[in-house]
Design a protein around this nucleic acid. Structure first.
Lengths: 363, 363
DNA sequence: TTGAAAGCGCTAACAC
DNA sequence: GTGTTAGCGCTTTCAA
């Protein structure tokens, strides 16, 4: 980890630059009472002006404005909400696996897009796919009184989390269905997507198809594995366990897994990498071994550079930004009082052929 | 934008699943008074138990615990802080350009890494490099009483933002120095990095070197442009304005810019793409035109797939996650009361040679 | 070991 | 138009 150094020679000091003039005793933040005092009005009048309520004389408004500006008054949203007895804090929390995975970052973008339209702020944090961490974050944000949650669920029984949320705090899950509870979910048609990918590889003449996936406890991963097996079965192929590599979370896991698969006595001639990081790791190993143009590869999730690698990466493209928008929309429906049974929005993934997935099996 | 549909056939209803039993009148969240009432103790005693204060009888603790659990009591952090008259909300805000750019997502990761160690929550939002939006978000988070800010500054005069923050709310800027104010900053040695990149291309025999950069109002972009010009000058080359393409924010901007550069009468034989998205756009156009192995390219910012493209992308690698960690560390020093002149931490970028930057000029 | 009272910064109802 | 009173959920005195 990069450390902010304490020794002086690492940084450039800027003491000489002209500084902004600042009030001497700015320690305590100005309060409404301070403003009222300065403007010579009552505290309630200040409240009216600040909140744009009607029935205040122009002159009074001007006086109050002068005071708020001189004192750099900023309303305390927490206190206001408390007084208002309001549940609506105009903020929601987003819990995702890790922000530095572009797939989740895109979900954030989609959520934010919708939240911003509504003037709602998004608080984000990473669970790193740890259920305990997820629960802790839910509690942390609840005590900060968010209006709702969008969550990419970690593996494990979510009854505890649902319990925390109770009935009045809505939560929409994304990417993956939470284990053990009924809830609103936005997810890809993972099983169908895996079937499409597998069928595509089978059509290329492949019979030994490797599978790279993450934690099979996750519905997402399990569905993809099931789809892969479905399609092999339909082709009359008995799915071999040795061709399945699970627990792939980061690229290095995928590298190890791909290396193992390629080292088998009868190695796969094609791979389905069911996660963005899985595809990256697989490409890395294939490239190292000079197999990029020999072993077919279909990835999952679109990436910025999928079209630039060699061969270009064929993928089952999801729409993570769309996941985020849809989840946020549903969440706001719930916040607005929608009271119907939990539903799952299933978004189809689509095959994008770019080359890597169209490599044919050696004949 | 993907829309959560209202028609029924798009989603799967899950009314039949077994639901968790839930309290009937769960509308109002349980308060400390509710707990006190149920446990048959005073509100203060509940407070003591909840906060783990000493001097409570074991039996009382047990009663209170029972009540908190039965009522699903969750403390209201806002009210607690209000009562405590405390400025410390154990939360900070992170304002970045856009979350779906992996460079900024990595900054988030670095900030979160440090914040988590301290038990501090990170609230994130995107400014989209719009100063007005940045200021609005600063105000929004201030009224939510965060303890401090980490900000990737938008272009434009930051005196207004600094004014908002006042003297008591610390802010550390990342990636880019804010215009018009003295502040703590973590940034790469942008000028030196651009010089290194340019020198590297010059060493490959190139004399016509194109430059792709973003908004020159940003110190980051301006410094890189300056470094590029520095080095051309040292090589006795007069920097040509026609070889400079600014305002590159997203990949499509870079595509247009690269196309323009390649269409010049005397087109560049090498490119320095001073932003991750600039490099992606440049690669796309070079690939389209079959020039990937003819025109040299040095990018900036490391990407997941830099080693997988063809040719592999040479870059000036920054450490955005490190930026985030360092900025957060500095911020916490400030929150803890550090009172010294604003400083700038300059982190060197390093050249990673992978192929695209080592293509020699045609002789 | 426990509780009553006051008040954090603000808004709500009602007065004036 | 404007001010007064009460109280949001909690913590702090301080007393019992």
């Amino acid at each position: 980890m990069l450390v902010w150094p304490t020794s002086a020679h690492h940084w450039r000091c800027e003491a000489d630059r002209e500084e902004i003039t600042m009030a001497k005793d700015d320690r305590r933040r100005a309060t409404m009472r301070d403003v009222a005092h300065r403007a010579g009005v009552s505290i309630k009048t200040v409240s009216r002006v600040v909140n744009g309520e009607p029935n205040v004389a122009e002159a009074t408004i001007a006086k109050v404005r002068e005071a708020t500006e001189a004192l750099r008054y900023l309303p305390d949203a927490a206190a206001a909400n408390l007084a208002r007895g309001v549940r609506d804090t105009r903020s929601i929390a987003l819990l995702i696996s890790a922000m530095d995975n572009p797939f989740y970052a895109s979900i954030f973008r989609g959520v934010e897009e919708v939240a911003t339209l509504r003037g709602v702020v998004v608080f984000a944090a990473s669970t790193h796919m740890d259920l305990a961490k997820e629960a802790a974050l839910v509690a942390a944000f609840m005590s900060r009184r968010v209006d709702g949650f969008v969550v990419v669920p970690a593996p494990g029984d979510h009854r505890g989390v649902a319990d925390l949320l109770g009935t009045h705090l809505p939560c929409v899950y994304v990417d993956c269905a939470p284990e053990g509870i009924a809830a609103d979910v936005v997810t890809a048609d993972n099983r169908a997507a895996a079937r499409t990918a597998t069928r595509h590889l089978l059509a290329g003449g492949h019979r030994r198809i490797g599978f790279l996936g993450d934690d099979a406890q996750l519905s997402t991963a399990a569905d993809r594995l099931a789809g892969y097996r479905d399609e092999l079965g339909r082709a009359g192929i008995v799915p071999a366990d040795e061709l399945v590599e699970l627990g792939v979370l980061v690229a290095s896991d995928a590298e190890a897994g791909t290396a193992r698969l390629l080292g088998l006595d009868d190695p796969p001639t094609a791979l389905f990498a069911s996660r963005n990081m899985a595809a990256i790791g697989a490409m890395r190993i294939l490239k190292q071994r000079g197999l990029s143009h020999r072993v077919a590869l279909v990835g999952m999730d679109e990436m910025d550079m999928s079209d630039l690698v060699d061969p270009a990466l064929s993928v089952m493209a999801q729409d993570p930004r769309g996941f985020g928008s849809a989840a946020a929309q549903r969440l706001f429906q719930r916040i607005d009082g929608l009271d119907e049974a939990p539903a799952t929005l299933i978004v189809p993934a689509r095959l994008i052929e770019r080359g890597s997935g169209e490599i044919r099996a050696p004949s």
